[in-house]
Write a protein that binds this DNA or RNA. Structure first.
Length: 423
RNA sequence: GCGGGUAUGGUGUAGGGGUUAACACGCCUGGUUGUGGCCCAGGAGAUCGUGGGUUCAAAUCCCACUACUCGCCCCA
């Protein structure tokens, strides 16, 4: 048994961590609903085509190396979702949400799968909170999505939060910008690290977030997308900034923030927090007005973000933030086997029926009261109800408080009321 | 795909060639008949990641592999 273990990049969520998850998902769902978003769920598996389409030249790499794809006997190919957006847009199209009142505002949670080398906060299976607004081009929609993200981390108590904001242009203006960038980089090719030379030819925008030494200075003088936006993109970006200003929400324009995939348009943002290993981002999002068409549907604008739960947990721990503790029984029933056990079992279910969280001592044979008391102590029980022969005869329950105070006897028919009063 | 680090009971560690692998926490039992925490006494639990090699003798030295982990690449 020593060598049976989790598959690579998979995590067990144990009770202690699960408390963080409940806290995060509860907070996120409340927040999203307050903004008028509705919960949906989409399948974990979709046809491979859905994820492959629209990724352009990059799709080969993703499909072959980064996704969990299953070939079916009938020749089909299905893939475990590596992200939420494509599936949600597919659901929008397939279920005719285009004829619902627009826009459609959705959120969801669930696992996603990426076949990559695990790192801190990056696992092969990880879970995301995901929010999308479909069918709306108003920059205010971008704003709502962004503010859900920011306010989620704020509500959880995160410190050191910053918005990183950029516009990535659109098919009208992005190509010309990429050309300008390429030209600039080619002029300074001697200063580029090998990795960046490769990026320059494969995916020039990626050079912008290079971590190589000296790039800071070199890129400062590089063409910035902000100076190459078309009128539509420029207006959108300016409007969004104006709305953020109107909310007194600070942000940093980060011209190095990019999306390499074609269907991404206009707004791109991340929220960064202190800590969390090599990656500062707790979420990433943006506008993808080209996606619906790329997967074969009617042109539909969209904006959204996804945030990895594991990474949020990591950040919370690093910042010393702790989740509220879930309710656990504060009453336990001890017994001595035989008829006392029967009575104890009956009482336990009676109390639970009455809404009082109750722990029942398990024992196949007579078990020492000491052992049961020790158990109670380990589970933060405040009152142990001792069901012994004499108590049963007299119709009383012995109530032993563990947090100080005298042991008392309470008539069985008043026990529920007594426990409610005493908390 | 590339690089660094680590691998000893459930957890965290010690031990750096010599017969029963140590300690802490956790777990279980008991400290008189039915009373927890503290304390005390017992107990269970490890073929020292795997395989090979050196040696009279390997947890310890050597080689390989694997796993975990951190980072790079990629990042939807």
């Amino acid at each position: 048994m020593a060598n049976i273990q989790r598959a690579k990049g998979m995590q067990d969520i144990l009770p202690e961590d699960r408390n963080y998850w409940d806290w995060i998902t509860q907070t996120a769902a409340d927040l999203a609903r307050r903004y008028g978003f509705q919960r949906v769920d989409v399948p974990i598996i979709e046809d491979t085509d859905l994820f492959a389409r629209g990724m352009g030249t990059a799709s080969d790499v993703f499909v072959q190396k980064e996704m969990y794809t299953i070939k079916e006997p009938d020749g089909g190919s299905i893939t475990m979702r590596p992200e939420f957006t494509a599936g949600l847009v597919r659901a929008y199209i397939q279920n005719g949400m285009g004829s619902w009142p627009q826009p459609v505002k959705l959120f969801t949670f669930g696992p996603i799968f990426r076949r990559e080398r695990p790192q801190a906060g990056r696992y092969r299976q990880h879970s995301q909170f995901d929010v999308e607004i479909l069918g709306e081009t108003d920059p205010a929609a971008d704003l709502e999505v962004m503010m859900i993200a920011m306010n989620l981390y704020r509500s959880l108590g995160y410190k050191g939060l910053t918005f990183q904001l950029n516009s990535t242009g659109c098919p009208v203006c992005k190509p010309a910008y990429i050309d300008a960038l390429k030209t600039y980089l080619a002029d300074h090719e001697d200063k580029l690290a090998p990795i960046d030379k490769e990026r320059m030819s494969k995916n020039p925008l990626r050079v912008l977030d290079s971590k190589e030494e000296g790039m800071e200075a070199l890129l400062a003088d590089a063409p910035h997308i902000a100076d190459h936006l078309c009128v539509d993109c420029e207006t959108h970006f300016a409007d969004l900034r104006g709305l953020l200003d109107a909310l007194n929400q600070s942000y940093s324009i980060n011209f190095r923030l990019v999306r390499g995939i074609d269907y991404y348009t206009k707004t791109v943002f991340e929220v960064w927090a202190e800590g969390i290993g090599a990656q500062a981002a707790v979420c990433g999002g943006g506008r993808y007005d080209g996606l619906a068409e790329a997967i074969g549907g009617p042109s539909t604008p969209g904006v959204g973000f996804g945030s990895g739960i594991e990474r949020i947990v990591l950040g919370l721990k690093e910042q010393g933030l702790e989740p509220p503790q879930p309710d656990a029984p504060t009453v336990m029933i001890a017994h001595f086997g035989g008829i006392t056990k029967t009575a104890a079992v009956q009482l336990a279910f009676q109390l639970r029926e009455a809404g009082i969280g109750t722990r029942l001592a398990f024992a196949r044979t007579r078990r020492s009261l000491k052992s049961q008391m020790r158990e109670a102590n380990k589970h933060a029980i405040r009152k142990v109800i001792i069901m012994g022969e004499s108590e049963i005869e007299e119709g009383m329950a012995a109530v032993r408080p563990l947090d100080g105070g005298e042991q008392t006897r309470v008539p069985m028919n008043q026990l529920v009321q007594y426990l409610r009063d005493e908390g």
